[in-house]
């Protein structure tokens, strides 16, 4: 390391190790893509014994998959919506006023993802069982919302804190009431944070399985469908297709959410 150069060069060993870690993180997911084309139905033989694209068509016609997919979509949509509302409210409350127990609120919201998922799952299961509530669409949604709120909350609160100076006061000073201030000043400032938080919450809910196992009863979301295939494989080729589909489906929102947060912190730096 040369102390006179402003950007030191990494040694080749460090570079190799970093690259190795990066490949370890990503290569396994590519392997699933590969397997969607295997003609082998019963094993995961490598090298692939041939090449076929028939599984896409077969997977496409599976009724149970479509049902699971649509259930997952509906659950994720409603849980995200609830998380957007609850998370934004909590963030606004914590941002705008100092009150006793502010720390406790952050703590309470982060608890569902800080504790092992099985704790949340079994707790909800106990409550559902103890109160004789029948398993339904809503038991899944309620479970998902508990851990989605914190994602929105964190994104929105961070944006509130980065919001430039006294914009809210300026707006009210210029004659806008609280509702107008929210619409013309707060919402445009929060827009990308809400979008990013919403997409992450959606992704989180869309492939959640641990809590869902305890709150779904006999219903099957897409992750539960995959889980059942993992423990007792029946439709390996179809599972490969579904897994690929899930990767692609979650990749885009996550990618854009990350880009969105990275960008907004960049522009923040420029305008300072």
């Amino acid at each position: 390391m040369h102390s006179n150069s402003s950007s030191p060069k990494a040694s080749w060993a460090l570079k190799a190790a970093a690259l190795g870690t990066l490949l370890f993180l990503h290569v396994p997911m590519w392997i699933i893509f590969l397997y969607t084309f295997t003609p082998d139905e019963r094993t995961f033989t490598f090298p692939l014994p041939g090449f076929t694209t028939k599984w896409f068509g077969i997977a496409f016609q599976r009724e149970d998959l479509w049902r699971a997919l649509s259930l997952s979509f509906k659950v994720a949509a409603i849980a995200t919506l609830a998380a957007l509302v609850l998370g934004t409210l909590a963030a606004a409350a914590v941002y705008r006023s100092k009150f006793f127990g502010r720390e406790a609120i952050s703590f309470l919201l982060v608890l569902p993802i800080a504790l092992p998922g099985i704790v949340t799952g079994i707790a909800l299961r106990t409550a559902i069982g103890g109160l004789d509530i029948p398993f339904s669409f809503w038991t899944i949604v309620i479970g998902h919302a508990t851990f989605c709120v914190v994602v929105v909350y964190n994104n929105v609160l961070a944006r509130f804190r980065r919001m430039h100076g006294s914009q809210i006061e300026a707006s009210m000073d210029l004659g806008a009431n609280s509702f107008q201030t929210f619409r013309y000043v707060v919402l445009p400032n929060l827009a990308t944070a809400l979008l990013a938080g919403g997409m992450l919450a959606f992704a989180l809910s869309f492939d959640e399985v641990i809590v869902t196992t305890f709150t779904a009863g006999q219903q099957s979301t897409l992750p539960i469908w995959i889980f059942s295939q993992l423990s007792r494989p029946r439709d390996r080729p179809v599972t490969n297709v579904v897994a690929t589909f899930v990767i692609l489906l979650t990749f885009l929102p996550i990618f854009f959410a990350q880009k969105l947060s990275a960008q907004s912190s960049d522009t923040e730096g420029e305008s300072k």
Partner: peptide, 20 residues
């Protein structure tokens, strides 16, 4: 009275211009 009901306007120290 809230700020929006007073015939008073402010120039802020950090200007508080709306960036959007």
């Amino acid at each position: 009275l809230p700020p929006y009901e007073r015939d008073v306007n402010t120039v802020f120290q950090d200007y508080a211009l709306f960036p959007h």
